[in-house]
């Protein structure tokens, strides 16, 4: 369960202050699939980064399972992200010198799993997204769609509480996008909480709820 209360994010550039989030209230129940939509500059990605503890809000509260996550130290946030969250970025964000298997195994390894156990779970996660035959390929040897599926595998391999996706299909062709979204659907059916930023109405439609932002405020929060 994620609760966001009166979340404000202001960026400062010298004397210039830009308020990107202007008091967001928002909740996501366990197992819910939420699509966050809005025009460019509406604050979608900024909201995602605050909720996923990648950034520090200017004010407001973020409660994750009733825990005041916004008050955690940097180290505690790192541990929280490692254990509870999974991330899928628009540009895949894979490490170029690690193979698909190693990219997925790395967070598991950081969680304390043995190398063999980490690689076993990474292999299973990659097979789940249909990349069982590309384990030893470097990102540069994979197509964009395959890289994004590796990214999804990395995000889910450690069974996170929440999966955050920031425009996961923005750089993909139609076929690859459909494939990634079908993986998300499958994960959702299995009970995975997902918060996804997207521009695509068609993909937002598969979510339980669509939160629309405009000029840093929630303008609509409707069930699909």
């Amino acid at each position: 369960m994620i609760e966001v209360r009166n979340l404000v994010k202001t960026f400062k550039d010298g004397p210039i202050e830009t308020r990107v989030l202007k008091g967001i209230d928002f909740t996501a129940a366990d197992g819910e699939f939420i699509a966050v939509m809005g025009r460019s500059g509406a604050g979608k990605s900024t909201l995602l980064y605050q909720i996923s503890l990648l950034d520090e809000p200017t004010s407001g509260e973020i409660l994750i399972n009733r825990k005041e996550a916004h008050l955690l130290s940097e180290h505690e946030k790192m541990l929280f992200r490692l254990a509870e969250f999974g991330y899928v970025f628009q540009d895949y964000a894979l490490l170029p010198e690690l193979t698909a298997l190693e990219n997925v195994a790395l967070p598991l390894y950081m969680q304390g799993a043995s190398r063999a156990a980490a690689e076993e779970r990474a292999r299973a996660a990659l097979e789940r997204v249909g990349l069982g035959s590309r384990l030893d390929n470097l990102p540069s040897q994979l197509s964009g769609g395959e890289q994004q599926r590796v990214s999804v595998s990395r995000a889910i391999a450690h069974k996170p509480s929440v999966l955050f996706a920031d425009e996961p299909t923005a750089n993909l062709d139609r076929e690859s996008s459909d494939r990634v979204i079908s993986i998300f659907k499958e994960l959702h059916r299995a009970g995975q909480t997902i918060i996804m930023v997207t521009h695509e109405d068609e993909y937002a439609a598969i979510a339980d709820r669509v939160v629309k932002l405009d000029d840093g405020r929630v303008v609509s929060n409707a069930r699909t």
Binding site: H75, L82, Y87, A93, P96
Partner: peptide
């Protein structure tokens, strides 16, 4: 730097 940010983002400690 971007990849270092990603590593930290996915939970790899700065010390590692």
């Amino acid at each position: 730097r971007k990849f270092i940010g990603i590593l930290k983002g996915i939970g790899i400690s700065g010390e590692a």
